[in-house]
């Protein structure tokens, strides 16, 4: 049986983090917006999250 090297495991773990944490499609979508629209997006996202938490 051939085992993964520590470097390979580290690379796989990093890929997993990126896959979970970084959405390049969303980043590209944000970059199309103006700074003012990005602020609107943030405020709405925070409000939505707070409303969701209150329902739990």
């Amino acid at each position: 049986m051939k085992f993964l090297t520590p470097a390979q495991v580290t690379a796989l773990m990093q890929d997993a983090v990126d896959a979970q944490g970084v959405d390049l499609g969303q980043i590209r979508a944000q970059l199309v917006l103006s700074p003012s629209e990005r602020v609107d997006w943030l405020i709405a996202a925070v409000e939505n999250l707070r409303a969701f938490r209150q329902k739990l």
């Binding site: 959405d23 969303q26 980043i27 944000q30 970059l31 917006l33 700074p35 990005r38 602020v39 997006w41 943030l42 996202a45 925070v46 999250l49």
Partner: peptide
């Protein structure tokens, strides 16, 4: 985080 959001970050900040 807020400055990053203005720059285009999708990470929420409170």
């Amino acid at each position: 985080g807020f400055a990053a959001a203005v720059r285009g970050s999708t990470v929420l900040t409170f």
